[in-house]
Simulated assay, not measured.
Amino acid sequence: MQSIYAMHQNDSDNLEKEEKFLFQSIENIRDLYLILLSALVELRNSEEDYIEKSSKKHLATPQERNPNRKFINNKVLLLLDENNSLSIALADRKINNWKLNDDYILILLDAIKNSEVYNKYMHNRENDFEEDRDFIAELYTEVIAPDEKLYEYLEDYKLTWVDDIPLVNTLIAKQLKMIKPDGNFFVPRLYKDEDDKDFVKALFRKTVLNEVELAKEFIDKTPNWDTERIAEVDAIILKMAICEFLKFPSIPVKVTINEYLEIAKEYSTPKSSIFINGILDNLVKDYQNNNKLVKTGRGLM
């Protein structure tokens, strides 16, 4: 939807170029995931470096000589630091943001140390996997993900990430809560399979190449609305939904409607989801009456 909207705004008809941008934007989501996940590792390493240097000072305090190492010994942080899947992905994508911008790690580390979550966790010096896991999950959700400085850095680094940050944060938080002591942690694939990737390309191309015909499907269903009065995002959402109705027989009607209503709630006007839902409901009834809606498989209507 965003890529099609960008094409309209740029008045572009270069399908190959815009499709390349679409797939690059999706690749960038994985980079965002890796950057945020690697921040946890860098936070641990930065704190370990600080503790080691403090303990070797000529006039080190008793606390500096015998520090509480619970945070740097956190079993989940150590697991991530030693994880092959994460290390390979970071090397493959050449992710080294925190090496180049360690000041953000120090700012984030300071925010962590001032948090109630951290101080409660550091109350003792014992490391237990379940406690370590619960702490990291809570720390990420309550302190790291909402951090304004981190958000500003990510926004400045790549503006298109603004919409992706909540999605990636949700995924990471979910993974952290489910991580196991056996270290069976894997960086998720960007696409479920090749069919998944092919669907992205097909939906983009079939919507763009058939925009005029797809628009005709709903114009007659909005007699009280001039074409110019329909918000551009709403028009794109309707075209994509109708494209799925008519050109993707394996996608259930209810799934299509639900997905695009959620997109409308997120990106369009407050009343758009009601407007779009009404049009799509009427279209589905018409398609069914005219045997125009062909869906294969069980439960697809």
Results as ranks from 00 to 15, higher is better:
123 H>M: 10
258 N>K: 02
130 E>V: 14
238 L>T: 09
145 A>D: 03
9 Q>W: 10
83 N>T: 14
117 V>F: 02
143 V>M: 06
25 S>Q: 05
259 E>T: 15
232 E>A: 07
215 A>H: 01
271 K>A: 06
256 T>M: 02
297 G>F: 08
11 D>M: 01
146 P>F: 00
97 N>Q: 09
276 I>N: 00
126 E>H: 00
115 S>E: 09
252 P>V: 10
38 S>A: 08
201 K>A: 12
202 A>V: 11
61 T>M: 05
131 E>K: 07
61 T>V: 11
177 K>I: 13
261 L>Q: 07
246 L>N: 12
179 I>T: 12
183 G>L: 01
76 V>I: 15
151 Y>Q: 08
77 L>R: 01
88 I>C: 04
278 G>N: 15
163 D>E: 12
109 L>W: 06
203 L>Y: 05
301 M>H: 12
274 I>P: 00
12 S>C: 15
11 D>N: 06
290 N>V: 00
108 L>A: 11
146 P>E: 03
81 D>C: 03
174 K>A: 10
237 I>R: 02
222 T>K: 04
61 T>D: 08
76 V>Q: 04
187 V>I: 15
150 L>G: 00
109 L>T: 05
290 N>S: 03
261 L>T: 05
104 Y>S: 02
160 T>F: 04
181 P>S: 07
238 L>Q: 09
260 Y>T: 10
115 S>T: 14
190 L>E: 11
119 N>W: 11
208 V>A: 09
75 K>M: 06
252 P>L: 03
185 F>A: 00
285 K>H: 11
32 L>I: 07
102 D>N: 14
300 L>F: 14
89 A>D: 03
86 L>P: 03
262 E>Q: 13
167 L>V: 13
63 Q>Y: 00
167 L>S: 12
71 F>T: 10
222 T>Q: 03
15 L>W: 12
200 V>N: 05
66 N>R: 07
47 E>L: 07
72 I>V: 14
74 N>L: 02
149 K>F: 10
2 Q>T: 05
222 T>W: 07
26 I>A: 04
210 N>S: 06
153 Y>W: 11
253 V>E: 08
3 S>T: 15
23 F>V: 08
120 K>I: 13
97 N>R: 07
105 I>F: 03
194 E>T: 15
45 N>M: 02
215 A>Q: 13
53 K>H: 14
62 P>F: 02
51 I>V: 12
48 E>R: 01
176 L>R: 02
148 E>L: 06
107 I>Y: 04
78 L>H: 03
65 R>H: 10
37 L>G: 01
93 R>C: 11
243 C>N: 10
78 L>S: 05
174 K>C: 07
208 V>P: 14
299 G>S: 05
218 F>R: 05
4 I>R: 04
218 F>H: 09
16 E>F: 14
192 K>L: 12
98 W>G: 12
53 K>D: 09
104 Y>V: 02
191 Y>N: 08
197 K>V: 08
185 F>T: 04
5 Y>Q: 02
136 I>K: 00
73 N>F: 09
154 L>F: 15
66 N>W: 10
230 I>S: 03
182 D>R: 09
62 P>K: 08
213 E>M: 07
69 R>Y: 14
99 K>L: 11
234 D>Y: 12
282 N>T: 13
175 Q>V: 01
4 I>D: 03
132 D>A: 09
